[in-house]
Structure formats: structure tokens, C-alpha cells
């Protein structure tokens, strides 16, 4: 059994007087114990909403979540709020993009780490603080004894993100969801945090869902990569397969459009034309069709199905990029 099995997850935002907006459209993927899975896409592709839906953190009103999120066989979407609270932080940890706004500014770091241990493991404050000290040490925060008493504004952005990782991993969850954990950080700090995440995931055997827009981050970290576009998974492949032979025109276009540090200089970038504003609804065809160089008539006749490929992945495309056309 998979650790996490997301089946046909949909999130529809509804506002009175406005047309409902489908942010996540029947997304399915699974995570095996100890595996690292990437969710990649640009802003508005539904990657963050997917993670919030899994964690049950979407607002109570204004949206409709359907489908199943099976964590070790239990459907998280059907849990009572109290039961979900027990699992959050204990079974599933989460790291957010902006560490400053996800830490409480008026509570010392130590208490924020200890809180999780008190809540889920029934430790008293003194014992929890001692444990918190060790956790801060484990995530590479220098002088953890003093850090315990300090407030988020007193430490740097990289240290804040480390503190957040300590909180997420305090109860040794079996699954960790990281939503753009390094986007707000400088590259050298990003390298520190990614190395730390990789090391902790290896040591503890925690499964990781990595949500990012940065294909470079995925390339070094994830076992399997799901590429999202317009709320749907358009391509899923093992890491090496995806980067060596991207079959979906969107994935192919993305890989071609990023300037690379190790590429030949002076070459023109192959931009994807248009923007997400040009998308058509999936009911009318492939959302990417208006921007696609490989578009065929069938693309405008309903959403293409997600079908298994010969190399063990999945692909949602009528006219995939030929295997011979590789990324330069």
C-alpha cells in the first residue's frame, strides 16, 4: 500500500456571483514510503492548493474538495476536524514558502518547536524544550540554547526556514510536504536548506512531497516528478526520464526556456508563447493548446486522457514531442 494515495482530487473555488473556478482538476498521484515526489508547475497551476487540500488547510467556506486522499488507507478528507488536527504535525508535517509569515512573531522559537511535542507526544514544557534544543541543533542552527528564547525577527531567513523544518520534523512524521521551501531564500542559503532536507529525509526515511516551480530543485531531489498545468497533471515520469526525454510540449518548452548556467552562451531562449491567460478550459480541449507548438485538431476536442507511457510514466497529450527531439 502506498503511504499517500491521492485519487481524483478536485478543488473548486466558488464565490457568490462568480463562475466557479477549478483550481485542481482530478489530480491523482501516490507517494511510497521514503520516496520523494515533485509537484512542478508555474503560478496558478494548482500545486499549492493540492498540498493545502491534502493537509485539510483550505478555508471552510468558498470551496468544494472532492476525491480521495488516502493516507495509509484512511481518507483524510472524511476525518473530523479534531482527528485531522491529531494527524497534522504528527503523521504529516508541512513547510511553507515564507518562514516569517508562518512563524508566530510574538512567541519564542523554542516554544513554537516545543508546542508540537507537547500537543502530539504529551511531553511537559521542560522536556519538550530540551527536545527542541536538540532539534534546532539537528537542523544546523548554531547556539541552539540561546535560539530557543529568541523571536523569529531576531534570526535570519535561512535560520527561520531551518526552525520551520525542525517544527515539521519534530514528531518524525512519515510524510513531509514542502511548499516552495527555498523560493524566498538566496541561492547559497537555498543550497544549505536543500542539502539539509535531503540529509534528513535520508536519515529518517520520511517521504517528501516537494512543491516547486524550479526545475533545477527537482532535478537534484525528486524520484518521481508530476508536472501540473492548469490544475491537471500533464506528465509524470521518473526524474532521469523526465529531464532526458520530456514528452509533453509544456515540459519540453519549460526546460528549453530556462537559461542554464552550463549551456552555451548567446543562444536564443526558446520561449513558450503567450501566457496562462490564454488557457482554454479543459472541457473544451487541452488547456495548453493555444500556446502549444505541437497542437493538432484533436487537442480542441475535449481534454486528452492521462495515459501510461512505454517508459513507466504517464502523459496527457495527443501529439507528444517525438523522442528524438531532446533538450539541448
Amino acid at each position: 500500500m502506498s503511504l499517500l494515495d491521492v485519487r481524483d482530487l478536485s478543488v473548486v473555488f466558488q464565490r457568490r456571483g462568480e463562475r466557479p473556478f477549478t483550481a485542481v482538476d482530478k489530480v491523482s498521484f501516490s507517494v511510497e514510503p521514503g520516496q520523494t515526489v515533485g509537484l512542478v508547475g508555474e503560478s496558478g497551476c494548482g500545486k499549492s492548493v493540492t498540498s493545502l487540500a491534502i493537509m485539510g488547510l483550505l478555508p471552510q467556506r468558498g470551496n468544494k474538495v472532492t476525491g480521495e486522499v488516502l493516507f495509509e488507507g484512511a481518507n483524510l478528507l472524511e476525518l473530523r476536524p479534531d482527528d485531522m488536527r491529531d494527524r497534522r504535525g504528527r503523521d504529516i508535517g508541512m513547510i511553507f514558502q515564507d518562514p516569517l509569515s508562518s512563524l508566530n512573531p510574538v512567541i519564542p522559537i523554542g516554544v513554537q518547536v516545543a508546542e508540537v511535542l507537547e500537543r502530539h507526544q504529551g511531553m511537559d514544557r521542560r522536556k519538550a524544550l530540551r527536545e527542541a534544543r536538540q532539534l534546532l541543533d539537528a537542523v544546523g542552527i548554531p547556539d541552539p540554547e540561546r535560539r530557543l528564547k529568541e523571536y523569529p525577527h531576531q534570526i535570519s531567513g535561512g535560520m527561520r526556514q531551518r526552525a520551520l523544518i525542525a517544527i515539521a520534523l519534530a514528531c518524525k512524521p512519515r510524510l513531509l510536504i514542502a511548499d516552495e521551501p527555498t523560493t524566498a531564500l538566496d541561492v547559497t542559503i537555498q543550497a544549505q536548506i536543500l542539502t539539509l532536507l535531503k540529509q534528513l529525509v535520508d536519515e529518517t526515511g520520511t517521504a517528501l512531497i516537494m512543491i516547486t516551480h524550479d526545475l533545477g530543485v527537482v532535478a537534484g531531489l525528486c524520484d518521481t516528478v508530476n508536472v501540473l498545468y492548469g490544475g491537471k497533471v500533464v506528465e509524470r515520469a521518473a526524474r532521469h526520464e523526465l529531464f532526458a526525454r520530456p514528452r509533453h510540449p509544456y515540459t519540453h518548452g519549460l526546460l528549453n526556456s530556462v537559461p542554464r548556467l552550463d549551456s552555451v552562451r548567446g543562444e536564443r531562449l526558446h520561449a513558450i508563447r503567450g501566457s496562462v491567460a490564454d488557457n482554454i478550459p479543459w472541457t473544451e480541449g487541452c488547456a495548453f493548446a493555444p500556446r502549444c507548438n505541437y497542437v493538432v485538431d484533436a487537442c480542441l476536442e475535449g481534454a486528452p486522457p492521462l495515459e501510461p507511457t512505454a517508459t513507466g510514466g504517464d502523459l496527457r497529450c495527443n501529439n507528444p514531442v517525438p523522442v528524438e527531439v531532446t533538450v539541448p
Binding site: V187, Q190, A191, T195, D214, F243, L261
Partner: peptide
């Protein structure tokens, strides 16, 4: 420190942290 979107490069390279 800059991640490169290529697993082959990423697996081989040595980071100066």
C-alpha cells in the same frame, strides 16, 4: 549552489556549501 535542471549534472556535482 545554483541548481541545474539536469539530474545527471546534479548527481555528479560537488557543492561548496
Amino acid at each position: 549552489a545554483v541548481p541545474v535542471p539536469d539530474p545527471l549534472v546534479e548527481d555528479r556535482r560537488e557543492r561548496i556549501l
